[in-house]
Simulated scan of single mutants.
Amino acid sequence: MRNRFDQQLELLNEQLTRMGELCEVAIGKATTALKEGSMEQAQKVIEADEEIDQAETDIERLCLKLLLQQQPVARDLRQISAALKMITDMERIGDQASDIAEIIITEEKSEAQDIPKIIKMSEAAGKMVRDSVNAYVEKDLELSRKVIQDDDVVDELFEEVKTTLIGFIAENKGAQGVEAIDLIMVAKYLERIADHATNIAEWVEFSITGIHNASVV
């Protein structure tokens, strides 16, 4: 029975890794769409969100199966409970990447769009997602805590981007100013994605230590 249970836990790790990869790809495609003004890449982000939703359903089903059909010890129970919490954050990451894509689709590329710090935010948030899931699979407490620290970097970039775009809006009252407001929303979604990656990392810490230090998101 334990061997079967361990096999299913390994399957859980594989499915979580796959869901994390889907989230990271969605963020990457959103970044590409932002840099290139690519409607095609933006549409792929929206399509990827459906895959992420399905992954959440599949993992939730597996977790419930593990809880109902087996008798997990405390450590296993923490691992399964953390996985259930993590997929909720990953599903929201998919939603927010899709929200970014929707903005890109509805707005033409503007002069305000060429802001390297937005791209840095996207890359940093994507790495946080990847690292948080890897920390869970590898039971790497140090990596999970690094993800939590990295959130400060994204927050600082968000404040810098917001300040830059507010200045741009003050100088451009027409359509360019409106598009800059949309870019503030893009940056905010990226900041939220980083927050969700932080949540994931905190649940990883719980799965390892039994202690959960929750952030407010």
Rank of each mutant, 00 (worst) to 15 (best):
M128K: 07
V133Q: 06
S122K: 07
D140P: 10
R145L: 11
I115C: 08
K146W: 10
E142I: 06
K127N: 10
R130I: 05
K139R: 15
V137D: 08
D131H: 12
E123K: 13
S132Q: 09
R130T: 03
E156T: 10
K162M: 15
S144Q: 05
D155L: 03
S132T: 00
A125Y: 06
D152S: 02
S132Y: 00
A135F: 03
K127S: 07
D114A: 12
L141S: 09
S122E: 06
G126S: 12
Q149H: 14
L141V: 07
I118K: 02
V154W: 07
I115H: 13
E142F: 04
A124K: 09
I148Q: 10
E142V: 06
E160C: 02
I148H: 02
V161Y: 07
S122V: 07
V129P: 02
D155R: 10
I118Y: 02
D155M: 03
E138C: 07
Y136M: 13
L157D: 08
D140S: 11
K162D: 14
A135K: 03
R145H: 10
V137W: 01
I119E: 14
V154P: 02
V129I: 15
V137P: 05
G126P: 02
I115P: 00
P116F: 13
G126D: 12
M121T: 00
L141T: 10
E123C: 04
E156C: 03
V154Q: 09
Q149K: 15
E138S: 13
F158L: 11
D151N: 15
K162A: 14
K146A: 12
V153G: 03
D155Q: 11
D151V: 06
P116Y: 12
D150F: 03
P116C: 12
E142K: 11
I119W: 06
V129D: 03
N134A: 11
L157A: 03
M128N: 05
R145Q: 14
F158W: 11
E160R: 02
D152K: 13
M121Q: 10
K139M: 09
V147K: 04
L141N: 01
K117R: 13
